[in-house]
Design a protein around this nucleic acid. Sequence first.
DNA 1: GTATGTTTCAAACAGCTGTTTAAGCCATGA
DNA 2: TCATGGCTTAAACAGCTGTTTGAAACATAC
Lengths: 235, 235
Amino acid sequence: MNQAKPSIPIGQDGPAEPKYSETAVRILDAAEGLFVELGMAATSLRLITQQAGVNLAAVNYHFRSKDALFEAVFLRRFGPWARACLEELDALERRVAGQPQALTAEVVMSYVRPAVALSKDPARGGAMFVRLFSRVLVENHRQLRETMSRQYGDLVTRYARALGRALPGLSEEEVEWRMHLGFSVMFHAFAGNDILKVFGRSAVSARDPDLIVKHMVPFVVAGLTSPSAGRPPGP
Amino acid sequence: MNQAKPSIPIGQDGPAEPKYSETAVRILDAAEGLFVELGMAATSLRLITQQAGVNLAAVNYHFRSKDALFEAVFLRRFGPWARACLEELDALERRVAGQPQALTAEVVMSYVRPAVALSKDPARGGAMFVRLFSRVLVENHRQLRETMSRQYGDLVTRYARALGRALPGLSEEEVEWRMHLGFSVMFHAFAGNDILKVFGRSAVSARDPDLIVKHMVPFVVAGLTSPSAGRPPGP
DNA sequence: GTATGTTTCAAACAGCTGTTTAAGCCATGA
DNA sequence: TCATGGCTTAAACAGCTGTTTGAAACATAC
């Protein structure tokens, strides 16, 4: 078994997003922008339908409720992104099938590449989606969170496995912590969640994905591979 | 001039928080918890006053409006924290006045120490405040942001200066980026903004500040001091 | 005692919220 | 031609929103 196979099928034929009518798409697009800008609670259906140029009742007709709309807005973007990540992980496992362990930088890039591709693709929401994701993170939408952990929980497991192999000198607990910290940096860097900007004093507020990657990847890799309590760092 | 003096006075006699009446404090406490849990938009004044056990009109009497209440909730916690950070920076500059440069870990700890102290002090809101802060970060409250940059903008400048001295081999741009990334990790780690938890698959959701520091500080220091484009890392 | 200024209270204000209803439109297929 | 089913529409629903009002309760000072 030297050819790694995806352990979950969503990389190939997983839960696909439903096909939406033109009206539904207009609603989704308008809602996406407003949710990002104002948040779920502060965005009214009247604002959405007005901006989308559709009737108010269309939301409850095409989607069941405001909550369901929000879930649809999120999952429409999240599905393709998750699939891209899984493809990257598959490719990574295939690449390092013969090698004893993957390189940390490769694991990092398997997350970064889909994020960059997403940020640069306006058709998939562009940088908007990551900001929407951080809304989901801070506001806590119970139902959406359940959907996520049910359908995509294994994604994290696979990243953990890959990172654990790349950092063989670390305990399981330490790998978990570093993964947590590393993904936090990557996620919030892409989302533009910069505390310094709250003070109006951040010069790096530029949202250029390539620039983000250039500075972020070395930072994260250094953090992930730093020596552990006196032990030497992994290669 | 070997004895560093604070460049801004707020460490000693800066903008102090107003003294609040008992009713006002009850409102602030209730609002704080609800803002953290539900967000500003989803928290109604009736919910706040009900939980505080005061009359509805008390909010508009003691604070001018809901917006002003939110600002008061935030600034009540932020003021003491900012002052603690400035004291740490003063102490750091005094400590390294003779040395050519500060150690990166010391700069990191000058931010971490007040954060830990805050997290452990229920009288000052405990871990609640950092979560409230991340609400401010994601929702963008224009007026509050202006207040922050006006009153506390220099705080970031001083951290940047300290970090720049600790990393003499790096360009100004690179220092800015690393500060941005480093503070992002620290902030979001304390706030508990863990993307992995969205997938229900995070083992490190524990909010113990000491445990956070134990794993986070080495990670951040490694990221900050990592070699720059072929150059060796600073000492 | 009265007068003064501060704080509380119940009630009402106009406006917005998500959702539902029933009538109408319009293309499809028989 | 008529009927069917998908979709849109304006209107109304009950309920909640932040804020204001004027009267009542309160403590303090004279």
